[in-house]
Amino acid sequence: MNQPFHSLGVAPNAWTVNHAIADITRPQKTPQPAILSTETKTLRLDLAKATIIVIDMQNDFCHPDGWLSHIGVDVTPARQPIAPLQNLLPQLRGAGVPVIWLNWGNRPDLLNISAGLHHVYNPTGEGVGLGHPLPTNGAKVLMAGSWAAAVVEELQQLPEDILVDKYRMSGFWDTPLDSILRNLGKTTLFFAGVNADQCVMTTLCDANFLGYDCILVKDCTATTSPDYCWLATLYNVKQCFGFVTDSQAILTALNQNLQRHD
Rank of each mutant, 00 (worst) to 15 (best):
L8V: 11
L8I: 14
N13V: 07
N18F: 13
A22W: 15
P27I: 05
Q28C: 14
P31R: 08
Q32D: 08
I35V: 10
T42H: 13
R44Y: 15
I53K: 03
I53T: 02
I53S: 05
I55L: 06
M57P: 00
Q58R: 13
S69R: 01
I71F: 09
V75Y: 01
P84H: 02
P84S: 04
L85R: 00
L85Y: 00
P90S: 00
Q91A: 12
R93N: 06
G96E: 02
W101Y: 11
R107V: 06
L111V: 13
I113H: 02
H118Y: 08
H118F: 08
V120K: 14
Y121I: 05
Y121S: 04
E126L: 10
G129H: 01
P133L: 12
L134W: 02
N137M: 12
A144W: 01
A148N: 09
Q156S: 09
Q157R: 11
Q157P: 03
D161G: 05
V164T: 12
R168A: 03
R168M: 03
W173T: 15
T175R: 06
P176N: 04
L184Y: 10
T188E: 07
A196C: 03
Q198R: 10
V200C: 13
D206C: 10
G211T: 11
D213C: 14
C214I: 00
D219P: 02
C220F: 06
L231K: 12
K238W: 09
F243K: 00
F243G: 00
V244T: 03
A253T: 05
Q256W: 08
D262V: 04
